[in-house]
Simulated assay, not measured.
Amino acid sequence: MTRGPLLYVCVRPQVGAAAAEYESFRKATRLDETRLAEHDLVREPLPADAFDVYSGFLVGGSPFNTTDPESTKTDPQRRLEADLARIAERSAAAETAALFTCYGIGVVTRTLGGEVSRAFPEDTGPTAVSLTEGGRADPVFGELATRFTALTAHKEGSAQPPPGGVLLATNDACPVQAYRIGDRLYATQFHPEPTTKAFTERMAVYRDDGYFAAHDYERIAGEVLAASVTEPVRLLRAFARRFGPAD
C-alpha cells in the first residue's frame, strides 16, 4: 500500500519562524513539498481528513508551554493543544505515526498521563545527549551515535516518560530527551531539525522571550555555530524512511 505524504504541523505564532522551521524539517527529512505538506495549527484547526490523507505528522516547536496556567492560555493555544492531543492519542494507538518535538513532547506526556513541570529547563544552545539501551535498540534512534550533540531551548520537561513509554535518550539536566510509545509515536525534547545557522536565526526571533538574556545573544550564537549537530537530523531521515512516502 502506498503511503501518503507526511504533514508538518506548525504551532508557532511567529509566521517567519514557522516558515523557516518547515524548511528545516523539509531539508532534514530530504522530502520535497509534495511529500512533506504543512499546516498552520495556530490559525486553522487540524483538517477533518488529516488522518486519512497523511501517513504521519512532524510537530514543530513553539514558545507556548504545556505548563502555562490555563487562565493565561489563548484560545488558539487551547485549540491546538486539543488537536495535538488527538494526534498523540491516534499515534499511540498505532493509527498513524508522529514525531513531536520540544513543546510537543509536553503535550504528549500530559495527554498520556505523565507529568510535565518547570523543574527541568535547559539553556539555549548545544547540549550532550546519550542514548539509553532502549534507544540503541530502537529502529529510528538506533542509527545514531550513542552520544551526540543536540540543540535545546525550553522551560519545562519531565523526569520520566508517560506510562508505557520507552526512554530513548537522556542527559543530566533533563532526564527525558526522547521516548517512544508503541512503535509509531516518538517525542523529543531537543530540536532535531535545525542547522546551527537556522537555530541562531530562530534565537534572534525569540531573544526577548526569556530563553536567554538578550545581551548574551552573540556569545550563545557563537557557541551554537561552533557545535556539530550531525546526528539529530539522522533520526528525522530515519523516521521519514520508516513512516513517510516512498522515494
Rank of each mutant, 00 (worst) to 15 (best):
T2I: 13
P5I: 08
L7I: 07
C10D: 14
V15R: 05
V15G: 01
G16S: 14
G16Y: 12
A19N: 11
A19C: 13
A20R: 15
E21V: 06
Y22D: 08
R30I: 12
L31H: 10
L31M: 10
A37T: 02
D40T: 02
D40M: 03
L41V: 12
P45R: 03
L46R: 02
D49M: 08
V53S: 07
S55V: 07
G56T: 11
V59K: 05
N65F: 10
T67A: 14
D68G: 03
P69D: 07
T74E: 02
P76L: 07
L80A: 12
A85S: 11
R86V: 09
R86Q: 14
T96N: 12
A97E: 06
A98F: 08
Y103F: 08
G104I: 10
T109F: 12
G114V: 06
S117A: 01
A128E: 10
T132H: 01
T149R: 06
K155Q: 15
G157Q: 11
S158I: 04
Q160A: 08
G164H: 05
L168V: 14
P175T: 14
I181V: 03
D183C: 04
T196F: 14
V205M: 03
D208W: 05
R219V: 10
L225G: 05
V233C: 07
R234I: 04
R237T: 04
